[in-house]
Nucleic acid binder design. Structure first.
Length: 271
DNA sequence: ATAATCACCTGCTCGC
DNA sequence: TGCGAGCAGGTGATTA
């Protein structure tokens, strides 16, 4: 479910309900996520007051004086605010119970998500230390992409989805941004001009920012922290449309596989 | 260093 | 209706 816009939508949805609250209890019904949920999580969190909910890449971070709660939604995770007496359903693995009788509940069928406690400076944690710039920051632009891509033979789509290059560009938005920029996803990253990378960086920013405005892309049952679905899906131009006709030129869209990921493009509009 | 593949896990759709 | 195959929004670990 979650790409960057969905994670950001979640962050915006839950933060107002968490800020200022103290954590009254922690319930872990299934500790086997991507990594084990720490057995001493409650000891770190109970009694602590939440100030803010931050995001770095697709990680959600809740900082405390002694360390940071780090969460990731993986492929199928979602977070929502519930009334504390709502009984947990199947795949409702973790609750952070708040002092106002509500709770933050993690639901994650595939369990690729994570809930970790990081002591001290979270930015030097191995999961975060090597990450590339945020796509919506000024550090990410066409000149940066061009410089990082020289002599790289991997497909530009794989390059764009590499978190060490830039974070937060998942499969949906990589497909969409490459279509918008008119670049074939299987072109070698090192063989694309500066001008075209400038266009690509602009389209990545535009597509992500617009999707965040729409509340993310709802596939299956994603809902933001406020329970509202995302509205971006209806605007997807290529993702999930393999075999259908291009909305710009009517050519049949090609669906292939790059780096094990479903890839859709138009061979007329993208070169 | 870079590129490709594997792995984690459940649920759903498809073809037979 | 049942069953195996393949696929799904991510990304760290492992292998060439």
């Amino acid at each position: 479910m979650p790409e960057l816009p969905e994670v950001e939508t979640t962050r915006r949805g839950i933060e107002p309900h968490l800020a200022g609250r103290r954590i009254a209890a922690v319930a872990v019904r299934q500790p086997k996520l991507r990594w084990p949920v720490p057995a001493d999580l409650a000891e770190q969190l109970v009694g602590q007051r939440i100030g803010a909910v931050l995001r770095r890449a697709k990680y959600l971070l809740i900082p405390f004086p002694a360390g940071t709660l780090l969460m990731h939604l993986g492929m199928s995770g979602s977070l929502r605010i519930i009334q504390g007496d709502e009984p947990p359903g199947y795949h409702d693995h973790v609750d952070l119970v708040l002092d106002d009788g509500r709770a933050l509940r993690l639901h994650d069928p595939r369990r690729f998500g994570a809930v970790l406690w990081v002591n001290g400076d979270v930015t030097v944690h191995p999961l975060l230390a090597g990450l590339g710039p945020e796509p919506l920051s000024d550090a990410f632009d066409g000149d940066y992409l061009y410089a990082r891509s020289r002599r790289r033979r991997a497909p530009v789509k794989s390059f764009l989805m590499d978190g060490r290059v830039v974070v937060g560009v998942g499969n949906i938005y990589a497909n969409e941004a490459l279509f918008a920029a008119g670049i074939r996803p299987d072109r070698a990253a090192g063989r694309i001009s500066l001008a075209r990378y400038r266009r690509l960086a602009d389209e990545v920013k535009r597509v992500l920012a617009h999707s965040i405005e729409q509340g993310g892309t709802t596939l299956r049952d994603f809902v933001g922290g406020d329970g509202k679905p995302g509205y971006f899906k209806q605007e997807l131009l290529v993702y999930g449309r393999g075999g259908e006709s291009c909305k710009l030129c009517r050519e049949l869209l090609i669906e292939t596989r790059l780096g094990q990921r479903s890839t859709v493009f138009c061979r007329r509009c993208q070169r």
